[in-house]
């Protein structure tokens, strides 16, 4: 009974967030335009070798898709007191957090799906292991959305969330193998790269589109670990705010 109530609450918050925020026409158009512009920019700049770059582009779309709107939604709701409306309800903090993370993951999933479609049709990306691709992407979306939630629940203002997100997002783009293979980085940067979740997203997507360079199971396990750590830290931030 309790579990069913919690699941119903998660589903209700997810639907509400999709309807009230994520599926608004400007967000849908951004979700479609952002991958198109990104894919076109790279195609025009360097039409060769883009098949290698494609998994990185999908990973980048997942990163921006999950963290951008989620940070706005959570901080906006905090600001206008609407988040408190959720705290008033007979729901655990864990359920509220999961609902918010799922919202970010669904939106990130939409943008990643558009980017995947573009990479397949425009850049000739071939998904050799569709299950690994879908599973890896889904886990990555959860991990990255959990990181977005951690940032959003730790700050007060929308601009703080965006600034803090950029501290993570931009280094990740350059360090996590999106453009430059992690293996070719100097050792200290390689160490940093392996401490960031996007590295494992890129590795997983690359493994499912090309030939696996490392054990994908390890990447999956590390992404689960990242998700768990981010969720636990966010849960703690929520409880601290309650005190």
């Amino acid at each position: 009974m309790r579990l069913r109530d919690e699941l119903e609450g998660i589903y209700a918050i997810l639907l509400k967030d999709l309807k009230a925020y994520y599926l608004k026409p400007p967000n849908i158009s951004w979700g479609i335009l952002f991958p198109i512009v990104l894919a076109l920019a790279f195609t025009l700049r360097n039409p060769r070798g883009l098949r290698d770059l494609a998994p990185g582009l999908v990973a980048m779309a997942a990163l921006f898709g999950t963290t951008s709107m989620e940070a706005i939604v959570v901080t906006f709701e905090k600001r206008v007191g609407a988040l408190e409306r959720l705290y008033m309800a007979p729901l655990t903090y864990a359920s509220i957090l999961l609902a918010k993370v799922l919202g970010g993951a669904v939106f990130g999933g939409f943008i990643s799906a558009v980017m995947t479609l573009l990479c397949v049709t425009l850049l000739g990306m071939r998904i050799s292991h569709p299950l690994l691709y879908a599973g890896g992407l889904a886990l990555s979306l959860i991990a990255l959305s959990s990181l977005g939630a951690l940032i959003a629940f730790s700050v007060r203002e929308v601009f703080e969330a965006q600034t803090l997100s950029n501290y993570f997002r931009f280094p990740m783009i350059f360090l996590c193998g999106v453009f430059i293979p992690v293996g070719s980085l100097p050792l200290p940067l390689r160490v940093v790269a392996y401490m960031l979740p996007l590295t494992y997203t890129v590795e997983l997507l690359r493994a499912s589109t090309l030939s696996p360079s490392t054990c994908p199971l390890l990447d999956l396990a590390i992404l689960i670990l990242f998700s768990a750590v981010f969720l636990l830290l966010t849960h703690r931030a929520m409880r601290r705010a309650y005190g």
């Binding site: 309807k19 206008v80 007191g81 408190e84 409306r85 007979p90």
Partner: peptide
């Protein structure tokens, strides 16, 4: 609460339906 903190983007009916699900 002191602030009227229902959801601006939802209709009155949708707001009550959402809250009824939360409860």
């Amino acid at each position: 609460p002191e602030a009227s903190n229902l959801y601006d983007e939802l209709t009155v009916w949708e707001n009550l339906e959402f809250i009824s699900r939360l409860y």
